[in-house]
Amino acid sequence: MSFKKTRQEFIADLDNLQTKVSAMGERASQAVEKSMRALVKGDKLLAHEVMREDDVIDDMIIGIEDDCILLIAKQQPIAHDLRVIATGFKISTDIERIGDHAFDIAKTTCDLETPLEGKCLSSVQELADCAERMVQKAMQAYRARDVQLADEVRHMDDEMDKVFARTFYVLSDYVKQSSDDNNHVTQLLFVARFLERIGDHAVNIAEWVIYLETAERIHSKKHAE
């Protein structure tokens, strides 16, 4: 009996799907970094670029979804093959949301009438660094099919929650002490919330990577913790 490899075309299609998901993740990760750079520098031109590029991310998810649907229809995938497709669907949705939050942050920059103050900004910068690291690491885990790396992202969420709580406290305190117009701080509270959500999506991606490689369903429940 020969054990020559079969279904080469299908295997290539699955590889291609994962390459597309990785590329989409890369785009969204860059969008988060650029949206924060635009916010910190008050660079509205860069912010507009991020908002325009969100359309590219939206187009990418349509392409990935179409690929997934076609592969299910034509190949009747099972076991690991099916998980590649199922996680392609799910991870691309999380990436698309990350892109949306980058868009929201960029829009905040565009809507500002005056540049943000350094003191307020530094409080969200730490949160942004944490969110960006989580997204990058989650996508790295996906590319490398690295369950351990994915697990590390899950644990980074605890740190993220602490930073978010601290940021929220600092910004709230600033509102109380400041007699100025608090519009800037309110905007930053929103940005902090967007960044915290980006971290959550990174955790989702990490959990799908674990499912992809082990078939184990893991879902962190924040309330239970």
């Binding site: 020969s2 054990f3 490899k5 079969t6 279904r7 299908f10 995938p77 099972i78 076991a79 690991h80």
Partner: peptide, 8 residues
């Protein structure tokens, strides 16, 4: 390998 058609 068998159920996913990886060999024949």
């Amino acid at each position: 390998d068998y159920i996913t058609g990886r060999f024949g």
